[in-house]
Write a protein that binds this DNA or RNA. Sequence first.
DNA 1: GCGCGTAAGCTAACATCTGTAAATCGAAAG
DNA 2: CTTTCGATTTACAGATGTTAGCTTACGCGC
Lengths: 198, 198
Amino acid sequence: MTESVRPRNRRGEGARLRAEIVDAATALIDESGGDALTLRAVARRAGISAPSIYAHFDDLGAVADAVLARGFDELTAAITDATSAAEDPVDRVIAIGLAYVRFSRANPARYRFMFASDGYSPDAVRAYEVLRQAIADCVEAGRSSSEDPHLDTWMVWAALHGAATLEKPGRPELLRLGALDRPRLLADMIRRLARIAP
Amino acid sequence: MTESVRPRNRRGEGARLRAEIVDAATALIDESGGDALTLRAVARRAGISAPSIYAHFDDLGAVADAVLARGFDELTAAITDATSAAEDPVDRVIAIGLAYVRFSRANPARYRFMFASDGYSPDAVRAYEVLRQAIADCVEAGRSSSEDPHLDTWMVWAALHGAATLEKPGRPELLRLGALDRPRLLADMIRRLARIAP
DNA sequence: GCGCGTAAGCTAACATCTGTAAATCGAAAG
DNA sequence: CTTTCGATTTACAGATGTTAGCTTACGCGC
């Protein structure tokens, strides 16, 4: 159960443990959810002693914040990647939405943890701004009949967040959507909210 | 901090404590979130000793389940109330959606707790079925151009759930939607997803 | 090659909380 | 007065965040 003995970092490389702690905390949340995030569990997982964490973080909350920050960074990266991969503005909006839900499905526990934290990080808003721009581009290109991209972005965001949250790690799906073309379902949902004609 | 001494129940009325325990647990979650739900906190809040809970519940999980069950009952009740209050099928769908989000905004912490539990209770599906029927009614009345009410219901549900979850108890709103006509925003969102013409 | 400062991390201990088991008390009902 | 329900006190074994103090080994200056 315990990790094998961890070799001590070289001199000057002490900061490397910081990243390892965040790794451990992230893995912990991914595997067992936010409740499993305890200082001692993180330490066990990282192969260090609990007090060693205090050299790099003020307290457990600071570790959690670091996990959050990394999560939002990953989410933002996934979304910006999707953005730059598509040329057509409509494709771009769809790609963003799919990337969003894909992230949440790939990291369900962490996603929940991220959005269960008090007050979303400003990083969340960064991703939101990307979506907003993409929808505005659709309007400018005459592909969306949206009259208020701000509001419509909110709707799309809410719907994506709902789709992301509704599907749990646990198998028993709320609705029988198993045999369904999920990307198409999400794409339809986005198009309707962003007022993009099929 | 401790509640005043609770008078012991009469003989044969022992089951009344069960309800008081659920009351206490519910209040606890409403005020401080799911993490605050500990056996001892519930006992303090109910004005009893911790082991007294075992007379009515197998363990802490059973208490949590009872809170969940009550929550889903309340949600279902709010939704069926909204359903029967509206004559017009379109009004009905909108009313259901507004009732849903209203519930989540009235009980944010409990709502989160409910949907953070592993595997939604079948009660959630009951409420879903009401929405599905309402949308099907719109189609039958020629008010919705939905081609697959099942899928569209899923979309509406997801969007409502997202709208419900996106707004946190903590003040810092993700998006500046303060001065906005929220019911109208939600109604628009629902109409678009359920393919109901304005 | 050799100290030796210091970075990197450890062990021990604390106060407090947790869920739960066992045994017990007290008052109301018959 | 006795039974029995409704609850209590006590105790446990383990977990948690955090503090204080100690150890070890790396790498620079000599």
